[in-house]
Simulated assay, not measured.
Amino acid sequence: MNQEKFIKIWKTCVAFCALIVAVLFVGCGPLDPVDTNKGAITGEPTSNTFNTLQPGEMVKIDFSGPPSPPHPHEENIKDDGTISLIHVGSVKAAGKTPGQLQTEIQQLYVPRFYRYLNVTVKPADRFFIVGGEVKAPSRQLYLGPITVTGAIKASGDFTEYARKNKVRLIRADGTIRIIDTIKAQNNSALDLPVYPGDKIDVPARMF
C-alpha cells in the first residue's frame, strides 16, 4: 500500500469517527424540560365558598341610573339556588359571588330593557338558628359549609332528653326535613347541609 492510499484511508477513518462522536454528542444532549406541574393535585378549591351566595340567604338588589329603574328587590335564595326578578324571571344566584350576580343581572336588563342600568347586590348577614334540646341554643353566624350534626355540635351538642332521630331542619322557604342524626353518623348523605336562614329544631323524647 503506497503512502497516498494510506493517507486517504486514514482521513476516511478520522471523518467516520468524527461523525460517530457528533451523533453521540447530540444524542446525549439536554433533554426537553419536564413540566413538573403536569398532573399536580392541589388542595385549593376552585371557588371560595365563603364568598359565594347560598340557598336560603337573603339578598337585596338595588337598581339605579335611568329615570325609572326597577324597584329594589329583596328575596331569600330558593332551595334550587334561584331568585325571581321582574321582567327577566328566574336567575341562578347560589354559587356566585355578589359581584358575579351583579354583572349577570345587569346583562339581563341591558340593552333588552334599559340602555344603561346600575345593579348592586348586597347579601344580608348570614345566620342560622339551632334550638330545642341542645345545650346552647343560639343564632349562629354562617361562616361556611356546615351540616346538621356539625351545627348541633357547635351548639354544645344534644341534651340527654334529645330525640336524635327526629331532628327538624326548617329551610328559609318553610320546607321541613326530618333528619335521623343517629343514622347520619354512618351515612353522610343523610347529614344535610345547613344554609343561611335555616333553623334546626331538636325535639324532646316522649319519655
Rank of each mutant, 00 (worst) to 15 (best):
N2Q: 05
Q3A: 13
K5E: 14
F6L: 15
K11I: 10
K11R: 08
K11F: 09
C13F: 13
C13A: 12
V14E: 08
A15Y: 08
A18I: 10
L19G: 11
L19N: 04
V26P: 01
V26N: 06
P30H: 10
P30Q: 13
L31K: 15
L31F: 06
D32M: 07
V34F: 05
D35L: 05
N37R: 15
N37Y: 14
K38V: 15
G39W: 13
G39S: 13
T42I: 10
T49W: 06
P55A: 08
G56L: 00
M58F: 11
V59N: 06
V59M: 07
K60M: 15
K60D: 12
I61G: 02
D62I: 06
D62G: 06
F63W: 09
S64N: 11
P67M: 07
P69R: 11
P69Q: 10
P70V: 11
P70M: 05
H71F: 13
N76V: 04
D80H: 13
L85A: 07
L85T: 05
H87Q: 09
H87E: 08
V88L: 08
G89M: 11
G89H: 05
G89K: 07
S90C: 04
K96Y: 08
T97Y: 05
Q100T: 11
L101F: 02
T103E: 15
Q107G: 04
L108V: 05
Y109W: 10
V110G: 05
V119G: 01
V121A: 09
V121W: 00
P123V: 13
R126P: 14
G131Q: 15
G132F: 02
V134L: 02
A136F: 09
A136H: 13
S138E: 09
G144R: 08
G144F: 07
P145Y: 04
P145S: 09
I146D: 03
I146S: 02
T147M: 04
V148W: 01
T149R: 07
T149Q: 03
T159S: 02
T159Y: 01
E160W: 04
Y161T: 08
R163V: 01
R163T: 06
K164N: 02
K166W: 03
K166I: 01
V167I: 12
V167S: 01
L169H: 03
D173Q: 15
D173V: 13
D173G: 10
G174Q: 05
T175R: 13
T175V: 10
T175K: 13
I179Y: 00
D180R: 01
D180Q: 03
I182F: 02
Q185D: 10
N186W: 08
S188H: 12
A189E: 14
L190T: 04
L190K: 03
L192F: 14
V194Y: 00
V194P: 00
Y195M: 12
G197F: 00
G197I: 03
D198C: 02
D198K: 00
K199I: 12
M206F: 08
